[in-house]
C-alpha cells in the first residue's frame, strides 16, 4: 500500500530568487486528514501547488503512488483535487453544471458518465438543486462548495484545500466543516482557522520560512504555546 502523499526533501525558488521551499518532507496516509498551518509567506500555497505539478521543484513527490513528473501530469491531476482559496478563480463557466463537468469532459469521459459524475459530486456537497444556477450569483459559502464539487467530479484520491474557510460567515463555515468531516477521502488543508484545526484534524503540520517546523498530533502541538507563538500562530 502506498502513501497518499509523499514529499521528500523538496526545494523550490521563484524566478525572482525567493526561496519558498527549503527541504520539505511530508508523508500522509490514505484517508488521513492533515492541517497545514503557518504564517503568510511560509510556503504553504507553494507546497500545495507542487502536489499537482503546477509548480515543479527539486526533490521527490509521489501522489497516490505516482511520481509527480512532467510525463505523469495528466494522471496526477486526475488523482489530486486542488481547491483554490478564491472560488472565483475556479468557476469560469456560465453555469454550475458546466463548471463541475469541466474535469470529466476534459478527461474525455462518455456523456452519461459525465452526467453521473456531476450529479454525484453535487449530491456530495449538498448542492444537487444548483446545477442550472449561475455560479457568479451564489454566496461565498455556496461557491466554495461548488468549487469542491468541481474537483470531486474527477474522483480524486486526495483532496487539497487552500484556506477553505477564509472570508466565510459562521454558518457557511460550520456547514463547510461538517462537509469536510464527512468526506471519506485523504485531505490536506492549509488554513489559518485554528478552531477548525482543533475540531477537525487529528494531525497538524506547521510550516514557517519554507520548512516544516512541527508535525504531530494536534492535541499535543496545540498545548505548546511557545512553539505556536514562535511561528506567529495563536492557541485557539
Amino acid at each position: 500500500m502506498h502513501h497518499s502523499i509523499e514529499v521528500d526533501d523538496l526545494y523550490f525558488a521563484y524566478p525572482d530568487g525567493r526561496k519558498a521551499l527549503q527541504g520539505v518532507s511530508l508523508h500522509i496516509e490514505p484517508c488521513e486528514k492533515v492541517a497545514l498551518v503557518g504564517p503568510n509567506g511560509a510556503g504553504k500555497s507553494t507546497l500545495i501547488l507542487h502536489l499537482n505539478g503546477i509548480l515543479i521543484g527539486k526533490g521527490l513527490i509521489c501522489v497516490a503512488g505516482l511520481p509527480v513528473i512532467k510525463s505523469n501530469l495528466g494522471k496526477v491531476r486526475a488523482r489530486v483535487g486542488l481547491v483554490f482559496q478564491n472560488p472565483d478563480d475556479q468557476l469560469f463557466s456560465p453555469t454550475v453544471y458546466e463548471d463541475v463537468a469541466y474535469g470529466p469532459l476534459y478527461q474525455g469521459l462518455p456523456p452519461d458518465e459525465v452526467q453521473n459524475r456531476v450529479s454525484e459530486a453535487l449530491e456530495t456537497v449538498r448542492m444537487a438543486d444548483y446545477s442550472r444556477r449561475v455560479s457568479h450569483h451564489l454566496s461565498v459559502g455556496e461557491k466554495k462548495r461548488i468549487a469542491i464539487a468541481t474537483v470531486l467530479s474527477m474522483k480524486p484520491e486526495v483532496l487539497v484545500l487552500d484556506e477553505p474557510t477564509a472570508g466565510m460567515d459562521p454558518r457557511a463555515r460550520r456547514s463547510l466543516i461538517n462537509l469536510l468531516r464527512d468526506l471519506p477521502i485523504t485531505m490536506l488543508v492549509s488554513t489559518h482557522d485554528m478552531l477548525m484545526v482543533r475540531e477537525l484534524f487529528e494531525r497538524m503540520v506547521i510550516m514557517d520560512d519554507g520548512r516544516i517546523v512541527a508535525d504531530g498530533q494536534t492535541e499535543v502541538i496545540m498545548k505548546d504555546e511557545a512553539l505556536l507563538n514562535a511561528h506567529g500562530l495563536e492557541k485557539p
Binding site: 469560469f92 463557466s93 456560465p94 453555469t95 449561475v134 455560479s135 457568479h136 450569483h137
Partner: peptide, 8 residues
C-alpha cells in the same frame, strides 16, 4: 459573452 450574459 456567454459568461457575462449569464452572470451580469
Amino acid at each position: 459573452l456567454v459568461f457575462i450574459y449569464a452572470s451580469r
